[in-house]
Amino acid sequence: MAEMTRKYGGIAALALLAGLAIGGLLYLSAKPQLQPTPPAPPPPPAVTVVAPTFDVVRVDAHGNAVLAGRAVPGAVVTIRSGDKIIGTATADAQGAFVLVPSAPLPPGAQEITLSETLPDGTKLAGQEVAAINVPVDGQGHALAVVSGPNGSVVMSGQGPAAGTLGMGTVDYDTDGHALFGGTAPPGAKVNVSLGGKQIGQAVAGADGRWHFISPTPAASGTITLLATGADGKVMPPVDVPFTLQTLPEAVAAGNVVIVPGDNLWTISQHVYGHGIMYTVIYTANANQIENPNLIYPGQKFTLPQPQKVP
C-alpha cells in the first residue's frame, strides 16, 4: 500500500511540475515582449546661409537677358535694375536659380542687384553688382561686368572668352591688395608672373575663370600667364602689359591708366562709388574712346571731379 502511495504521489508531483511548466510557457507567450528602441532619425542637413551671387549674366545688343546664379535652396531671389524689380526666381534644391526677364533691358547703363528671402522669412542682400550697358542703337555688343568682394569679372562685351587663357581684370582694394582675374580652360593650373617673378597662381573653375589676390605689385611691367590644362598639356604662354595705378594715386592725380580688363563701369564704381557714372568718364575722354565698350591697356583717362549722385 505504501508502495502504491509513493508511486501515485510521484506521478502527481510530475503532473504538477508539468502543469507549472506549461502554465509558465503560456504566461510568457501572453506577456508583451519588450522591443528595442528604434534609432533616432538623422537630423536634417544644415543649410548654409549665403548671399545670392551671379553665375551667368548674358545680355544681347537688344537687351534680351538671361540672369542665373546661386542662393539658399528654396529662397526667393529678387532681381532689381536700380530700384525697379525686373523679376523673381526660386532657388532649386541645389541652390540654382535662373531668370529670363519678361521684357528686354532698356538701352543704356544700369546696375543689376540681387537679394533673397529665405524660407523662414529672413531677407539677405547680395554683395555683387552686375553693371550692364545695352547699346542704344541695338548694334555691337552689350557690356556686362560683375563686381564683388573677389574683384570684377567681365561676363561679355570685352576681354577674353571664358575657357581661353587670358587676363581679364585687375582690381585694387583699400588694403594694398591687387585682385587678378582671368580665363582658362576648366581645371587648368595658371601661374601668373610679373617681370619674370611669380605673383600668384590659381586653378580655373568649371566656369572657365580664375582669380587670386596678392600684394599690389611695386612696379609696372609685363604679365606672363603660364598654364597647364587638366589633361597635363602645357598651353602657349600669354603676355599682357601691366601698368601700375592704384586707386588713391588715380584719384589724387585726377587720372587713371587703363590696365588689362579695366572698363569704364568698374573704374566708375571704384572712383565714384556708382558704376552708372561711367558717362562722366566717357564725356571727359570722348576724344580717346571710339566705343565705350572697348578701352585698351595704356590709355590714360582724366577723372573729373564727381558731381553729387541722386
Rank of each mutant, 00 (worst) to 15 (best):
G168E: 07
L118Q: 11
D262K: 06
V57Q: 02
V59A: 01
A178P: 12
E290N: 10
G200S: 09
Q127H: 15
I11F: 14
L105R: 07
L124H: 00
K189H: 10
H62E: 01
P52H: 00
L124F: 12
E111K: 13
L105V: 08
A93H: 02
I258E: 01
A46L: 02
T122L: 00
G19E: 05
T113P: 12
A142L: 00
L303P: 12
Q245D: 09
V129M: 09
A40Y: 02
L165Y: 14
L25V: 15
F301I: 08
G87Y: 05
Q94F: 12
G181V: 10
V309T: 15
T222R: 13
S29Q: 07
Q139H: 06
R70L: 00
E128W: 08
D83H: 08
A75K: 03
L226M: 12
L303T: 15
A68R: 06
M4L: 08
L20V: 14
Q299H: 05
A125I: 08
G19Q: 04
L14W: 10
V154N: 09
G69D: 04
P186D: 01
V57W: 03
P106I: 02
A284D: 07
V251K: 14
P101C: 00
A206D: 07
S115H: 06
R58G: 00
I79S: 03
D262P: 14
A202D: 11
G140M: 01
A188G: 13
G82V: 10
G275H: 12
A184L: 08
V256E: 02
T302G: 08
G74P: 05
Q94R: 09
G151M: 02
P237F: 02
P107G: 00
V50M: 08
Q245A: 04
H177M: 07
K189C: 00
P39M: 07
V98R: 05
A21G: 14
G140P: 01
G182H: 06
P236I: 10
P292H: 04
A286Q: 14
T246H: 04
L143T: 13
G95S: 02
L244S: 05
P42R: 04
N133I: 10
H274G: 06
P236H: 09
G166T: 12
G87E: 07
T88R: 06
G74C: 03
G232I: 04
